[in-house]
């Protein structure tokens, strides 16, 4: 159980929480920063000011009410589908890996990968928009062809921690994986 200061690729602070349930079972939780009130204000104000400018010329009140609707639904959709509060990775040696991300609205998406399909966990680098980032990913294999990587599952996709954080998760994952092989 430890908490250390890490940051994500754009320099915002995130926190990593490692929980050791047993020597074969570890859980890593990366929590993103909360949505800042300033950002919400900026987006809301810009939509409303734009709507007011349109209203000033057209004098149609439907513009104003639609602006209110847009900001409200936009905010709801954002917290339900986009904003991820924390992502966790549960590694259970001999059983598999569970990846779950919970959104700000409370929605949770969980996937489970069984051990027989996992080839390895690695840190890879990728071109992401206009920069190059490191990310942690699980390499999958088909049980019929154990030497071929069939697909790649990237981890911590929305929080995008930096290398020092990834390296920490990587090392303890490898510890568990090497024990059960």
């Amino acid at each position: 159980m430890e908490d250390e200061a890490f940051s994500n690729i754009s320099g915002k602070a995130i926190s990593l929480d490692c929980q050791t349930h047993s020597s074969f079972c570890r859980e890593f939780t990366v929590s993103s920063p909360k949505m800042s009130i300033g950002k919400v204000m900026v987006y809301t104000c810009s939509v409303w000011l734009l709507a007011y400018a349109v209203f000033f010329f057209t004098e149609n009140t439907a513009v104003l009410s639609s602006a209110i609707l847009i900001t409200l639904t936009g905010m709801m959709l954002h917290i339900h589908f986009v904003k991820v509060d924390h992502e966790s990775l549960l590694v259970i040696g001999s059983l598999g890996i569970q990846v779950s991300s919970s959104y700000a609205s409370g929605r949770e998406v969980t996937t489970f990968i069984e051990m027989s399909r996992i080839k390895d966990i690695v840190i890879n680098e990728a071109v992401y928009l206009n920069q190059i980032i490191y990310y942690l990913c699980v390499l999958l294999k088909e049980p019929s062809e154990p030497n071929v990587v069939s697909s790649v599952v990237p981890l911590f996709q929305s929080s995008k921690p930096r290398l020092n954080c990834l390296a920490k998760v990587y090392e303890s994952c490898q510890e568990i994986l090497s024990k059960c092989q």
């Binding site: 940051s7 690729i9 754009s10 320099g11 680098e125 920069q131 980032i133 930096r162 290398l163 020092n164």
Partner: peptide, 11 residues
Amino acid sequence: LAPDRHMDMAV
């Protein structure tokens, strides 16, 4: 916008 210190040095 994206200072150098936010970039991870390549290993």
